[in-house]
């Protein structure tokens, strides 16, 4: 009789608790995102050593320190570039990238666009609070026009970026929006994003209770409409998703805007990885290959 070895260690919420407690302000939306990510990993039973949580800089980028997975708390705006390197070096890892709107859409905007067109297989969660919090309240790329902040005390005169439309245009293959006050839906979107094979973008309204007095829980709640409640919504229809992404004001959609599964992820498109993760590859070039490299030059 064959012996089947099964990793029987059950992943529980307690296993995913970080070494320290979050130092976010009481009421910060990021608590809800952290809880939803931990719940999603428990639901999917992914062992913590196979997960890498990678962030940039900002309040929400403190995230990796609060969850017990492998973590990288890197430079402002650079998490996606680093995450791409991690995924290509060991594509067996589940890669989560977390950060804020300034980190992702401002200083990291270039990497955001290019990571999406590359279809890197990771889940990118942006805790979008429409403000710079850790630097004590300046305008962010998603701050609404007219919003008064310390950096634009007479009101923002620049139009905000629309992350969902941008992601659609850049070619992300899974695009969703959540709300940290909607735990059940948020957890479900995170699970879908982790399971999707390609670039999953999840923009999460995560209110800043200290510096953003415009976009509060109370402001969001009556406006948010779940896409899954609309029987006509077809997340495989790119044009329809683009139209939905433009809705803002009295009705703001949350849920899955778009998903396509016919594009291979970056690591699946490069034959160099066919033999398995680079981490386990032999570092020695076989002698006959090395010989051919030198012969070319003779």
């Amino acid at each position: 009789m064959a012996t089947v070895l099964v990793d029987t260690k059950h992943v529980a919420m307690a296993d995913l608790k970080g070494k320290v407690d979050p130092d976010w302000c009481p009421g910060c939306g990021d608590f809800g995102v952290l809880a939803a990510v931990q719940k999603a990993l428990v639901d999917l039973q992914i062992p913590n050593h196979n997960v890498v949580t990678i962030s940039g800089i900002g309040c929400s980028s403190n995230f990796p320190g609060y969850i017990n997975t492998y973590g990288m708390h890197t430079l402002h705006g650079r998490a996606l570039a680093i995450a791409t390197g991690v995924k290509l070096a060991n594509h067996e890892l589940t890669v989560l990238v977390t950060g804020g709107d300034g980190d992702g859409f401002g200083i990291g905007g270039n990497h955001f666009v290019h990571s999406m067109r590359r279809n890197v297989d990771l889940l990118y969660i942006v805790m979008d609070n429409q403000i710079y919090g850790l630097t004590t309240g300046q305008t962010s790329p998603t701050s609404r026009m007219g919003m008064k902040t310390k950096s634009m005390p007479f009101g923002n005169i620049e139009a905000p970026v629309n992350p969902i439309s941008l992601a659609l245009a850049a070619g992300a293959t899974f695009i969703a929006r959540g709300f940290s006050g909607e735990q059940k839906q948020l957890t479900d979107l995170i699970k879908q994003g982790i399971q999707h094979k390609g670039f999953s973008f999840l923009d999460v309204f995560s209110p800043c209770v200290t510096y953003n007095h415009d976009n509060t829980y109370q402001w969001f709640r009556p406006r948010l409409k779940k896409l899954e409640d609309d029987p006509a919504h077809d997340p495989t229809d790119w044009m329809a998703a683009m139209r939905k992404s433009l809705l803002w004001g009295d009705e703001i959609p949350i849920g899955k805007f778009f998903e396509r599964t016919d594009v291979p992820p970056l690591h699946g498109a490069e034959p160099v990885l066919n033999a398995g993760p680079l981490l386990h590859a032999d570092t020695r070039i076989p002698p006959d290959v090395a010989h051919s490299f030198v012969e070319e030059l003779m």
């Binding site: 890498v52 990678i54 990288m72 890197t74 430079l75 650079r78 570039a81 680093i82 995450a83 791409t84 390197g85 991690v86 995924k87 290509l88 070096a89 060991n90 890892l93 270039n110 990497h111 666009v113 290019h114 490069e270 034959p271 160099v272 990885l273 033999a275 680079l278 981490l279 590859a281 032999d282 070039i285 290959v289 051919s292 490299f293």
Partner: peptide, 28 residues
């Protein structure tokens, strides 16, 4: 492909060095 090296052209040198660090961090 002969040498078994993942080679990427990146959007800028900021992305280059950080992507390289990411791969290095994962152990290669």
């Amino acid at each position: 492909r002969k040498a078994g090296i993942m080679v990427r052209q990146v959007e800028d040198e900021i992305g280059v060095v950080n992507m390289a660090i990411g791969a290095a961090h994962a152990g290669v």
